[in-house]
Structures are given as C-alpha cells and as structure tokens.
Write a protein that binds this DNA or RNA. Structure first.
Lengths: 110, 110
DNA sequence: CAATTTTGTTCGATATATAGAACAAAACCA
DNA sequence: TGGTTTTGTTCTATATATCGAACAAAATTG
C-alpha cells in the first residue's frame, strides 16, 4: 500500500469530513495550497510543505508528522518493533554499533 | 529544559561528532543553512525548514521529526529507538533478513 | 611561532512554498 | 428546472527556504 503524503492527507481529511476550506481554516493554510499538496500535478513539480505547516496539518488530522512523512509506515508494526528491539538491545555495544553502521550504509545504497 | 529546534540539531550533531559541513553532506543541505537553523539570529526571522529537509536531518541524527518538532520532547531512549527502527524498516527485505540473522546469532554468542 | 586546514559565519542570488484571488464543478434546494 | 451555496481547481504574486561563495575564527601541524 504505502500511501503518498497527499493521499494520506486527503484520506484523513475526508475521514474527518472536512472540506479543503475547512482544513485550511483549521490548519491555518490556504485551500489552494492544500489542494496542491493532495494533488501533485504530473507537469508541475511536487510541493514540499514546511515542517511547520505539516505539524499544523498533522495536528488537525490527529496524526503524527512522522506518520505523514514515512513512506513505509504500517499501523500494525508495534509488535514487530518491540520484539526486534528486545533482541537488539541485548547485544553488546560493539555489535550494536556494527549493526547501526550496516543499516546506515545499506540504507543509503540504491 | 525543552530545547529549541536549533538547539536539538546542534546537540545531536555534536554528539555524533559532525561538523556543519559533515552534517550538510550527509543530509544533503548546505552548511550555511544548517548554521541558520542552529543559530536563529535575533534580528532576522527564524528559518523554518521544509519537512523534507527536516526528515533528512532527523535521519542522519538518528531521531524522529516528531521529536525535533515537539517543543516538549526529551531525547530519551524511545526517540532513538523509533528512528533506528524506521531506518531498519526501510531496508529492502534481503538486507533486513541479514540484519535479523546477525542479531540472532550475535545474541546467542557469549 | 607561521602556515595550512578545518570549522563556523555572513550575505546576496535563486528556487520554491504559500496565499489570494478568480474560475469551474458539483451539491443542494425552491 | 433554475439559482444559490458549497466544494474543488487553476493562475499569479509574494514571501521565504535554501544554496554558493566569500570571509573569519579556530584548530592543527611542523
């Protein structure tokens, strides 16, 4: 699945029953701008909201900025996360470092 | 305490032993801009990073955007864990498997 | 110490986020 | 049906995020 930023905003906006105008008012932005956020036009370059605006929008929609920004976010990952960390945190510091480095560099690879 | 955005960035940057130049390189921004983020001048109006830039910076500093943006947030274990896991979960499946195997086997070693 | 390299600071130029209309479509209602 | 009101869309103007390069300070080295 993995919704885009615009898709997430629209999804949660509609779930709350807000019009663009309403969300604009509540998040202190303009509906035209919100529309551009939700509908990135193929010709135009995608618009990148400021952290401040995104915070306001996230707040109104009752979600976190991390959720809005993270392309891979899944709602049911909590359990997996916990288990993963329990094991990870039991490693000795040197090993932890190695793992962190790998994640860092592998993540950058493309 | 409640650190400002700039203070948090600087704190975590120094903890990682990065110069402005280094952080700029890793987060794909300019050191001049990072400096402005860290040092809001009284005369000038504070600079508000885009969500995108903030995400990159947060990633390099191993924290979440939520943490950076939340004025009341503390740099506790949870934040670091969150950020760490987020990076991990973005790896492609094969790499994730490798990491998991290492954690598994290194954990058993003693 | 002087010279060189690294780090931090300032400033002007450019790109882009964002607002504010005006316009179009759809929804509502007499 | 027609108009009226709400909702969505497009365009242009302005503010501001962000960069590059030049300058300053500090640190390092020999």
């Amino acid at each position: 699945m993995a919704l885009s930023l615009g898709e997430k905003i629209q999804k949660h906006r509609k779930e709350k029953g807000y019009s663009l105008d309403k969300l604009a008012e509540l998040s202190e932005s303009s509906k035209s701008y919100l529309w551009e956020l939700e509908n990135p036009r193929p010709g135009k370059k995608a618009v990148k909201p400021s952290a401040e605006k995104l915070t306001q929008i996230a707040s109104v929609l009752s979600v976190t900025t991390d959720y809005l920004l993270d392309d891979t976010a899944q709602p049911d990952e909590e359990v997996v996360k916990e288990a993963f960390f329990r094991k990870f945190s039991k490693l000795d510091p040197k090993d932890k470092e190695r793992i962190e480095e790998m994640i860092e560099s592998w993540g950058k690879r493309k």
